[in-house]
């Protein structure tokens, strides 16, 4: 039960992350959730994943967020949301209640309790998942590289191979043009 404060804390952090006006604050609250969840995992005895959550979730992801925000610029966006807040809250509450109707009472099947080490489980039983992670990272990295690739840079690199690559989308096109393409 020692993890109760962490659990409460992470939910509160989540609330603030959603509410934060500035992007940087949202990213920091998110890191807070990560830290608290990592502590909670530690309390449950899942030490290895706690360390990983701490380093990847609170470390790497936060760094990436801060980096992206530095590139983009911290732009507070206000104004009405797409869904009225009250309606959104009601819908979410309904969904969570519906889900908990199926969940409670929680009856876990604890018949099996063969305990091996984390490393053995990962590298023997679930080694296929571990290998697929490599593919996931490869696909993700290719995706990021493809998305951030800029035509001008490439064109310069390739010494005019694509010299006439058009870049007409740098200046925002008028909105009427966008509307026209939709039906």
């Amino acid at each position: 039960m020692e993890f109760l404060p962490f659990l409460l804390g992470s939910v509160i952090c989540g609330f603030f992350a959603v509410r934060a006006a500035r992007l940087l604050h949202a990213a920091l609250w998110l890191a807070g959730i990560s830290v608290l969840i990592a502590l909670m995992m530690y309390q449950l005895g899942a030490w290895e994943i706690a360390i990983i959550e701490l380093s990847v979730g609170a470390g790497l992801v936060t760094v990436l967020f801060v980096f992206a925000i530095a590139v983009i610029g911290d732009e507070p966006i206000s104004g009405r949301s797409l869904t009225p807040k009250l309606l959104a809250a009601a819908l979410v509450a309904a969904a969570v209640l519906l889900l908990s109707f199926f969940l409670f009472p929680v009856e876990a099947n604890s018949a099996v309790s063969v305990q091996s080490s984390f490393a053995a489980t990962l590298w023997q039983d679930r080694v296929l998942d571990a290998l697929l992670q490599v593919m996931l990272i490869f696909a993700g990295v290719l995706g990021v590289m493809g998305l951030l690739d800029e035509p001008k840079v490439r064109a310069a690199e390739e010494s005019g191979l694509h010299a006439e690559t058009p870049a007409p989308f740098d200046q925002p096109a008028p909105d009427s043009h966008l509307e026209e393409e939709r039906v």
Partner: peptide
């Protein structure tokens, strides 16, 4: 259910996979 180590291995894959989704999402945002 008394298979904490298995749960941990699954969670590791989830963290890696969803970090990749987040990274692609950030690139899209840029």
């Amino acid at each position: 259910n008394g298979q904490l180590q298995l749960g941990q291995s699954l969670a590791l894959t989830v963290i890696v996979a969803d970090t990749m989704v987040a990274v692609v999402g950030l690139a899209l945002a840029v």
